[in-house]
Deep mutational scan, measured.
Amino acid sequence: MDVFMKGLSKAKEGVVAAAEKTKQGVAEAAGKTKEGVLYVGSKTKEGVVHGVATVAEKTKEQVTNVGGAVVTGVTAVAQKTVEGAGSIAAATGFVKKDQLGKNEEGAPQEGILEDMPVDPDNEAYEMPSEEGYQDYEPEA
């Protein structure tokens, strides 16, 4: 019985440690998101679009440190934060509304985080759909 109880105690310690790591990862992701939003706020009209992409990228980098179902929630929060940063930029006159959601080359930025393969159960990952990809044929 002692062996059984000791095993359960060790398992509990492992769960607590994993929860603490997840909590730490979420806190880091939130900190990076805040950094990115402050970065966007300090940019001029020309830099705002690039700044919004930076927020998304920093958040995406930190999301990889967070495991399990938390990833889905962090990704949703990050996307809403990026959308909010863009709205703030438009409201303050840093950028025109028609410039939001495009990178410096004018290509749409939507789907940055949505296409990231995420499995809350950590069982399997699927690649994003290939609808947006084109076949590449090298020139002879």
Rank of each mutant, 00 (worst) to 15 (best):
G25T: 15
V26I: 15
P128E: 06
E131H: 09
V15S: 00
E137G: 07
V3L: 06
A56N: 02
K96Q: 07
V37P: 00
A85W: 14
E83D: 08
T92C: 14
A124D: 14
T64R: 09
D135Q: 09
Q134G: 12
P128D: 12
T59W: 14
T92I: 04
A30T: 05
Q24E: 07
T33Y: 15
V77K: 02
K102V: 14
E57H: 05
V40I: 11
A30G: 01
T44I: 15
V16S: 08
S87H: 13
A17K: 12
F4K: 00
Q24G: 03
G47A: 15
D121P: 09
E123A: 06
A53T: 09
P117C: 12
G84H: 07
K80T: 04
T92P: 04
G101N: 02
K34S: 01
A107E: 05
V40N: 00
G7H: 05
G41E: 01
K12G: 02
T72S: 13
Q99D: 11
Y39V: 05
K45M: 15
K58T: 07
M1P: 00
G47F: 10
V37N: 00
K102W: 14
E83G: 06
F94G: 04
V63W: 15
L100Q: 09
D115W: 06
Q62S: 09
E139I: 12
A11M: 15
Y125S: 06
N65D: 04
H50T: 13
K80I: 06
V49F: 14
G106Q: 05
P120S: 08
F4L: 06
V40M: 08
V74T: 02
G41N: 03
V55G: 01
K23N: 01
E28G: 03
T64V: 13
L8D: 00
T64C: 11
V118L: 08
E110T: 13
H50A: 13
G84W: 10
N122A: 04
A90D: 06
E83T: 08
K80G: 04
G51M: 15
A27K: 07
G73W: 12
F94Y: 12
D135M: 09
I112F: 05
Q134W: 09
A140K: 08
G31W: 13
V3M: 06
I112K: 04
L38C: 08
S129H: 06
D115A: 13
V49M: 14
A69N: 05
G36Q: 15
V49R: 10
T81Q: 02
E13H: 02
A124N: 04
V63R: 03
K34L: 06
G132C: 12
E104V: 08
N122M: 10
L100G: 09
V40P: 00
P138H: 05
M1A: 00
A90V: 11
E139V: 11
K32I: 14
V63N: 01
V40R: 01
